[in-house]
């Protein structure tokens, strides 16, 4: 009898979130999320998460989280068809600690492994949750900022940041202002920005479909240093920073939409859960006669379920990652993945 349903366990740990999720696909293309758990490493205000500490966090919580994910999913080890894990891009040490754990599960339970590109995981999850068919994708997080569109079996990068990611710019500015990292620095900036109303001058750095954030961060830091005599507040600074960088992101997305002739946008990645960004993008897309698709924090912020989902899509086309090929890499371009599961 042909198989009519598959279950995958996904392990994600490319940054400070350890995520484990269990997903089921059926042959009639139904996708069910059986469990989606996350444990976040939160560093004290004014600091970022260091690779070594983050890896230690992932190692410490992995076994517990994996067992809980299986229990919550209500499935046994025998039900799982494949173990999926993030192979890159991301921070080296956290990636490796989760890859080691995934390899262990694979050998222990005798299950095949599938290595997943983190960005492709975000895109596939976003498409499935929102039902967006063939959108221009804006992928914005702490480590990545890319404008992507699908063409001929690959997710092609039309534009991206030339230096740091937009989320990194926000996170580091949160450190400057000593804003709490709990639940996420970007979330706290968003809340402060709601109370700001003075727009200060920051650079605006768009180059075609690419953009750059490091100079903006430096200028924002310089403004923050003159706050006492400047007559503006941390709220105004957060407001200014958000308005400027989000205007840039909307602009490059709009340019990519015009270029490929699409009117759908899908926002994925941690910064994608920012409601101001979603609102600005929505207004832009509406004016172009289209719409914006975004997901909430369960799927925007790094999670295991997206890795399970993208991994299972590849698994069902016959893709496997042999044990000897399971080393992870900090540099793994979105367009390196051959997307066999789409037309």
């Amino acid at each position: 009898m042909a198989k009519d349903s598959w279950i995958a366990l996904g392990c994600e740990g490319s940054a400070n979130k350890l995520g484990i999720g269990v997903i089921r696909h059926t042959s009639s293309n139904e996708t069910t999320i059986l469990s989606n758990l996350r444990h976040t490493f939160v560093s004290p205000p004014g600091t970022g998460f260091l690779p070594k500490d983050t890896a230690a966090h992932h190692r410490a919580h992995f076994p517990q989280l994996a067992l809980r994910a299986l229990k919550e999913a209500g499935c046994s080890i025998a039900d799982v068809d494949v173990i999926c894990f993030t192979q890159g891009p991301g921070m080296g040490a956290p990636l490796s600690s989760v890859a080691v754990a995934a390899r262990t599960l694979s050998l222990l339970w005798d299950k095949p492994l599938v290595g997943v590109n983190h960005c492709v995981g975000h895109i596939e999850m976003g498409r499935t949750i929102t039902g967006a068919d063939n959108p221009v994708v804006l992928y914005v997080s702490g480590g990545n900022s890319q404008v992507i569109a699908y063409a001929e079996q690959r997710y092609r990068i039309f534009g991206e940041t030339l230096d740091i990611a937009v989320g990194n710019c926000l996170d580091r500015f949160a450190r400057t202002l000593k804003i709490s990292n709990d639940p996420a620095p970007g979330y706290n900036i968003e809340q402060l920005a709601k109370k700001g109303n003075i727009l200060l001058d920051l650079p605006y750095t768009v180059k075609g479909m690419d953009c750059s954030f490091s100079g903006i961060l430096a200028s924002a830091d310089a403004l923050a240093a003159t706050m006492d005599k400047g007559g503006f507040t941390p709220e105004d600074l957060c407001f200014t920073l958000q308005e400027t960088v989000f205007a840039m992101l909307v602009e490059i997305t709009e340019r990519a939409m015009a270029h490929v002739g699409s009117n759908q946008v899908l926002i994925v990645g941690g910064v994608g859960s920012n409601e101001r960004l979603q609102q600005m993008m929505g207004e832009m897309a509406r004016e172009r006669g289209g719409s914006v698709f975004a997901t909430d924090e369960r799927f925007c912020i790094d999670n295991g379920i997206m890795i399970a989902h993208a991994g299972l899509l590849a698994y069902r086309t016959g893709y496997r990652t042999e044990l000897k090929d399971t080393m992870c890499t900090q540099r793994f371009r979105t367009d390196e993945v051959f997307v066999k599961w789409r037309d």
């Binding site: 063409a151 001929e152 690959r154 092609r156 039309f158 180059k207």
Partner: peptide, 17 residues
């Protein structure tokens, strides 16, 4: 050089073949 790089990238994503 960056100008050419932008074109090269856009070309690859627009006309992969």
């Amino acid at each position: 050089a960056v100008d050419l790089y932008v074109l090269e990238r856009a070309f690859g994503s627009t006309h992969p073949r």
